[in-house]
């Protein structure tokens, strides 16, 4: 019952994001969306996914979004709100196909659905003996599917490098009008350092 309620809240939040013109509010709603999704994961027994979503979705991605809005613009351009026929048609077609596809899916919560018959029982039975931790998600993540996790960290590393390449570099900061020296004149600093060194001059030849 509670999952139906949470699904309804999720849809309402998504609808709010769709309608809002204030990007700041949309970012906050997307954070709320993540939090609701995390609650729903919790209800569906995916505790690890829930806390990852709460930390990453509701936390980090909101911070990134707000930082982006601080640098760019807070408000969406005011334009006449109308349903765009092309995208609407595409979305409806995709939705109809997907609904049709779900019609012969096993019902929600069925214990003998095909998903549960292969591999999962083995993990549940032997992973506490083979790997150790009582939390099976941990043992699958770190041991049985260790290469997956390795690939994931590689992707995150690649994304981090990409972000740094896009935003890094002093020239770019200067072009954007940012003062990364925080108002300190570098030449002045050099002068002070030089004078200090003059005063503390070491005897020559000393290593």
């Amino acid at each position: 019952m509670i999952d139906i309620l949470l699904f309804a809240f999720l849809m309402l939040t998504a609808l709010g994001i769709l309608r809002l013109r204030d990007l700041f509010a949309a970012a906050m709603l997307s954070s709320l969306f993540s939090l609701l999704a995390a609650s729903l994961f919790m209800v569906m027994d995916a505790v690890d996914v829930a806390f990852t979503e709460a930390a990453v979705g509701a936390g980090i991605s909101t911070i990134l979004m707000l930082a982006t809005l601080a640098i760019t613009k807070r408000q969406e351009k005011a334009r006449k709100r109308q349903l765009r026929p092309g995208p609407a048609l595409l979305v409806l077609a995709c939705g109809a196909m997907l609904i049709y596809g779900t019609l012969d899916m096993p019902h929600f919560g069925t214990a003998d659905a095909p998903v549960h018959t292969y591999l999962a029982p083995r993990y549940l039975e032997v992973s506490p003996i083979e790997v150790g931790p009582p939390n099976i998600v941990t043992s699958v993540l770190a041991s049985y599917r260790g290469y997956d996790t390795f690939g994931e960290t590689t992707v995150v590393f690649a994304a981090a490098v990409g972000v740094l390449l896009l935003l890094g570099g002093r020239r770019r900061f200067r072009d954007a009008g940012w003062d990364i020296t925080m108002g300190v004149d570098l030449r002045e600093v050099q002068e002070i350092v030089a004078r200090r060194q003059e005063g503390l001059k070491l005897p020559e030849g000393d290593p």
Binding site: M44, D45, A46, D48, V49, T52, E53, V56, G57, I60, S61, L64, M65, A67, T68, V115, H116, L119, A120, Y123, L124, I136, V137, V140, L141, R145, D148, T149, E152, V155, V156, A158, A159, A160, G162, V163, L166, L167
Partner: peptide, 26 residues
């Protein structure tokens, strides 16, 4: 117990998702 395998896969998907979001925002 609920099936742990999709949980693991989606854990990976969430973390990769934040990577794409960060790159898109950059």
């Amino acid at each position: 117990y609920s099936n742990p395998l999709p949980h693991v896969l989606m854990l990976t998907a969430i973390v990769v998702g934040i990577g794409t979001t960060a790159l898109a925002l950059a």
